[in-house]
């Protein structure tokens, strides 16, 4: 039985339809990726699943519990890292973790060791006594992941976990996330608008303007846009071209002094080509279709990064504003 089951879920905000007839199934112990551009309805879906919003129609079940009727059972089963940070910046890393441990009714005798373990897992143990204000974006995200795991949830939701991080912190965070199902026995449901990040997912649904337009494993989805492309440079392109066409029965074309051919199994095809015409080959490279290509094919448009920005800066300004009032 899938641990997350979403059936025909729709949500309207007044006249705006945020999501429209969304259905999803996620198997236990897998990483599920929910991909789509800004405003596609990813966060709305997560908010319904974690019981903060009620849907206009449809049903969502988590770990066998109905998100509307059994919301408190659902809440016990899940951990969440929201799109916008929800840490208390005036508190230390340890205190933030403690706040959650108590809210989730973790046994008092276990709180300390669990927090320390979680902080070690995300490499923040040394900084546990620092107030979160002093943390970088990547550290805050990692702390939120650790906090989301403190009560040992069965499912962890991650809404745009890498938003606003530099490439190194992103890679770092991905290492943590891909380890989660094995190390923490948790099913991961994550959203992102960075198509390349979704490669690590076991299954993916692509959502655009509130509707799911494709679902499958990353490989299945990429196959829908045609196969891999192999580029070959040889000493004598003309001769190599005719030989490859003869042996493998494919069309080979030439562009910029390179031969290229399309195939469904690029990685196993390369050794065979080398075996056949090995001594003539100067270089070989393989280009695989990306999830971005899938999205473009499905929607006819590109996901644009610049549309998306965190609301953090705005909120920092507001914090300063609040501090002034505090004094007043």
């Amino acid at each position: 039985m899938p641990i997350i089951r979403v059936e025909h879920l729709s949500k309207k905000f007044g006249t705006v339809t945020a999501i429209d007839d969304v259905s999803i199934e996620v198997e236990e112990g897998t990483i599920f990726g929910f991909l789509g551009p800004n405003g596609a309805g990813k966060s709305t879906t997560i908010n319904i699943l974690c019981t903060l919003l009620s849907p206009t129609s449809g049903r969502a079940m988590i770990a066998g519990y109905d998100c509307i009727k059994d919301s408190s059972m659902v809440r016990k089963a899940i951990g969440i890292v929201f799109q916008d940070p929800t840490l208390d910046k005036e508190l230390t890393a340890y205190e933030n973790m403690m706040l959650h441990a108590y809210l989730y009714n973790v046994k008092r005798s276990e709180i300390k060791s669990r927090i320390n373990d979680a902080l070690k897992f995300v490499d923040l143990y040394e900084r546990r006594k620092d107030v979160v204000k002093k943390f970088s974006g990547g550290m805050k995200r990692r702390l939120e992941v650790a906090r989301g795991l403190i009560h040992r949830p069965r499912i962890l939701f991650l809404d745009e976990p890498t938003l606003g991080l530099d490439p190194q912190s992103r890679a770092n965070l991905w290492d943590f996330i891909t380890d989660l199902p094995k190390k923490h026995n948790v099913t991961v449901f994550m959203t992102t608008h960075y198509m390349d990040e979704a490669e690590v997912c076991d299954r993916i649904s692509i959502i655009d303007s509130g509707s799911i337009i494709a679902t499958g494993t990353p490989d299945e989805l990429k196959k829908t846009v045609g196969g891999d492309v192999i580029y070959i440079k040889t000493a004598d392109n003309k001769k190599a071209k005719s030989e490859i066409e003869k042996i493998f029965d494919v069309d080979v074309s030439e562009k910029n002094d390179e031969l290229f051919l399309t195939t469904l199994k690029g990685d196993s095809c390369i050794p065979e080509i080398i075996k056949a015409i090995g001594e003539q080959v100067l270089s070989v490279r393989l280009q695989r279709p990306t999830l971005n290509d899938v999205f473009i094919k499905m929607t006819g448009k590109q996901i644009r990064d610049e549309e998306i920005s965190s609301t953090d800066t705005f909120k920092d300004e507001m914090r300063a504003y609040r501090r002034r009032f505090d004094r007043g």
Binding site: T51, R75, F82, T86, L103, N105
Partner: peptide
């Protein structure tokens, strides 16, 4: 009043969301 309406800031900064998804009444 000030302490109570800090809830508005908690909402604005998302902190309240973190508390509301916890299994507490």
């Amino acid at each position: 009043i000030f302490s109570a309406i800090s809830i508005i800031w908690d909402k604005e900064f998302g902190l309240m969301k973190g508390i509301l998804v916890a299994p507490v009444s």
